[in-house]
Design a protein around this nucleic acid. Structure first.
Lengths: 153, 153
DNA sequence: ATCGTTGTTGCAAGAGCTTGCAACATGGAC
DNA sequence: GTCCATGTTGCAAGCTCTTGCAACAACGAT
């Protein structure tokens, strides 16, 4: 758990919304409260649930729509986990993707450095600009790969 | 994982199923008929629809379950598109992922060569074995990246 | 041809997410 | 403080997929 040490990043949201002609509503306040307490990665349904813990009248559609707005503003980024479900990165400080082991289900962060080779290759050969934050690489982690190699079923 | 014969790869399915104590049903026959006519990539819902065109009584659950079986047998592989929906690769001859432009929506294949750098880096540093076929990299294609750079809207 | 085992199917329900739409409430104007 | 324009909300319905479960049917054995 890190962050929050800086000047409250969420404090600026209200003004950002107003600057864009958007509104500051109780529902948005609730979601932002939840996000400010979240660390790193959260699932969409998870967020809906946490909002309901604060305000039981929370509706999924509102949460997802607010998440869209917040992503536009740059407060969060979303990607899709190994199972295709949405996954949100809160206050992404550095661009990163995810590594997911299909066997044990664990997930790790994929740093820019590790993906650099591919990112550069794609930019050079195709002019394609990778959005790392949206990437989830699935495979087998070292432990599971070893276990499968040994087991041979 | 199985070696799929080159000539009429689908012809061997019935025997493969029997060898495993599984059954050859009309529903599976329908899906295989659809798959044998599909080229490259298809969405899950898309497959259900095509099966229904042949047999209107087709049920989603049966289709998805059969797809699981076929993936076990190595006839198809599945991944998740940029929107998180399932995407099936039929008869994957070479391992490849996908490149998706979030702006124009186009998709390209990502060959092993292009991802090699990253795949090797992950294997070397973490012992992580990437399953390329499950990967979809999202970003901006050359054209869209250029367009966005030119006019900020 | 018939039987019995057991892999499969279809239904129903549900999770996760999206969208159209009418009613509502924010926030600037007066 | 009151009003109004319009950004937002909540509902309802729908899409994509998944899962539990009871009924069904494939297929080897008889």
């Amino acid at each position: 758990m890190t962050a929050v040490t800086k000047i409250d990043p969420w404090g600026s949201i209200r003004d950002l919304l107003h600057d864009r002609g958007m509104r500051w509503t109780p529902q948005r306040r609730t979601l932002i409260e939840v996000l400010s307490r979240a660390d790193g990665h959260v699932g969409g349904a998870d967020l809906v649930e946490r909002c309901r813990a604060i305000d039981p009248t929370t509706t999924p559609s509102t949460v997802y729509r607010t998440l869209d707005v917040l992503e536009d503003l740059g407060f969060i980024r979303h990607g899709h986990g190994a199972d295709g479900r949405e996954e949100f990165h809160v206050l992404p400080t550095r661009d990163h993707g995810h590594l997911h082991c299909g066997a044990c289900g664990q997930t790790w962060e994929l740093g820019e450095g590790e993906a650099q080779g591919m990112v550069d290759a794609l930019r050079g050969k195709r002019g394609f600009e990778v959005d790392l934050s949206h990437v989830t690489i699935v495979g087998r982690c070292a432990d599971c790969a070893a276990a499968e190699g040994a087991r041979k079923d």
